[in-house]
């Protein structure tokens, strides 16, 4: 009997712990000033961003969290579209690796896309985007995979010979250490020579919409 009571006590303890943890899980706008201090957003920008987050996170399930379907829906206005990059960006936003985005993850990731964000943050993010296997370098095979996938998504058609030739030339230029891969330093040098590679890393909307 005593053992049984002890078991019930332990179970209650575990349940209370779980509830407590769940309550502490930050979902919404807890303290805009902390986020404003730790990102490039102003307090009013954080508040405006939260309104956007609420809209996106309630599109499919109104739970104050963004799942992949809601993420795709917000980006493309359809959840049917296949996009390697949308998947990749979602995974990079999802720093807790639990398949959903809370407001803090969303705001911290979007902060990199702010016009005032440091260039190095944009370079790092774009590097991670292309480093599909997260090995700390971009392999030729990853580049080929991305080229083929994005061409297929867009309906553009290039022969394998042309694709191979473009990738050869890219590595001739970027892979200055001649080890068959592009590391972060080589990526940084390539991006500085071709600033257009960071074009999608800046969203003017974050300044215009969030302050209006």
């Amino acid at each position: 009997m005593l053992q049984c009571l002890e078991g019930v006590k332990q179970l209650c303890g575990v349940l209370l712990k779980c509830c407590d943890l769940d309550l502490k899980q930050p979902k919404g706008l807890e303290d805009p000033e902390i986020l404003a201090r730790e990102t490039v957003f102003s307090v009013s920008e954080v508040e405006a961003l939260y309104e956007l987050f609420k809209k996106i996170s309630s599109a499919v399930i109104d739970d104050g969290l963004i799942n992949k379907e809601e993420f795709q829906l917000a980006l493309f206005k359809t959840n049917k579209k296949e996009s390697l990059f949308a998947d990749r960006v979602f995974d990079l936003f999802d720093t807790k690796h639990n398949g959903i985005l809370g407001f803090e993850e969303f705001a911290r990731a979007l902060s990199v896309f702010h016009p005032n964000a440091p260039l190095d943050e944009k370079i790092d993010f774009s590097f991670q985007l292309y480093d599909l296997k997260q090995q700390g370098f971009i392999e030729r095979q990853e580049v080929k995979q991305m080229v083929v996938a994005t061409l297929a998504e867009s309906g553009m058609n290039l022969s394998d010979e042309v694709i191979e030739s473009i990738i050869d030339k890219t590595f001739e230029e970027a892979d200055t250490k001649h080890d068959g891969k592009i590391d972060k330093e080589e990526w940084r040098n390539l991006v500085l020579r071709h600033p257009s590679l960071l074009k999608n890393m800046t969203l003017q909307y974050l300044k215009v919409k969030c302050t209006s």
Partner: peptide
């Protein structure tokens, strides 16, 4: 095809990819 050889693979990915996060802000 000659012109396509002058762009690098990442520029090509950028052109072909539909990824543009501005979709978040458009109704």
């Amino acid at each position: 095809d000659k012109n396509s050889h002058q762009i690098n693979a990442f520029q090509l990915i950028g052109m072909a990819s539909s990824l543009d996060l501005s979709g978040f802000f458009e109704d």
